[in-house]
């Protein structure tokens, strides 16, 4: 499913997300940095400690993805835990030619589906308390109220999308994933993944604009 995909350089893209492994590159030259793929192959081979390093590199973006997907921090934390547990449990299914990030989000999507099936509910509309919490967590304390409102609006807009739309949209924002990989995660064709990402962005824009005109009460 995750065959090597042609990678288009993303350096010039103005929306590039920070790559968590980037800050590991500038290190003392006695230690060769190990790629995610090598680490996961080590885990597959029984060196389970290597999963700790993968956790350190990836749990932040994964958690962020899950919070935005589910709209719930607690649920996101539970699902993230299950994702890493499944990496351990299904480590033998990791492929030689695999991409770790794609595999991780593939597992995350499955785990999130299981979670939604179990709780038998779409993500709840945004809880204002939760939102406030998010705004407070901004590292820059001098944030203007309007920026906070913007985040709140977008959060609500995301929550109003269909889960499929939200999923493809959030995945498409990870610049390190190619659309071939996104298609693999979503188990659809590359063409379908692109069309879905387009459509989801249009939907988000519509809801977001509508909310901007009639703000939260």
């Amino acid at each position: 499913m995750f065959t090597a995909a042609p990678h288009i350089p993303v350096d010039s893209c103005s929306f590039a997300v920070n790559h968590p492994a980037d800050d590991l590159v500038a290190t003392v030259d006695t230690l060769a940095p190990t790629s995610d793929h090598e680490l996961m192959l080590a885990v597959r081979g029984g060196e389970l400690d290597a999963l700790g390093e993968l956790f350190e590199r990836h749990h932040g973006p994964l958690f962020g993805f899950l919070v935005k997907l589910t709209g719930h921090r607690a649920a996101a934390e539970d699902i993230a835990q299950v994702v890493f547990e499944r990496m351990l449990k299904y480590r033998h299914t990791y492929r030689d030619e695999g991409s770790f990030t794609a595999w991780m989000y593939h597992l995350a999507r499955r785990c999130a589906s299981d979670h939604f099936r179990k709780t038998n509910a779409a993500p709840h509309a945004t809880d204002p308390v939760d939102l406030q919490h998010h705004a407070d967590e901004r590292p820059d304390a001098g944030e203007t109220a309007s920026t906070g409102d913007d985040h709140a609006l977008l959060h609500t807009a995301l929550a109003r999308l269909d889960r499929d739309d939200r999923e493809v949209l959030l995945l498409s924002r990870f610049q390190e994933l190619s659309f071939a990989e996104i298609a693999g995660i979503l188990e659809c064709s590359v063409g379908a993944a692109k069309v879905r990402a387009h459509r989801a962005l249009h939907s988000l824009r519509m809801v977001y604009l509508k909310l901007q005109k009639e703000p939260l009460t």
Binding site: F15, P61, E137, L154
Partner: peptide, 12 residues
């Protein structure tokens, strides 16, 4: 898209 990418990243 800019707003989406600028959404704060929560930490677990």
């Amino acid at each position: 898209l800019i707003a989406l990418d600028a959404m704060p990243a929560p930490t677990p």
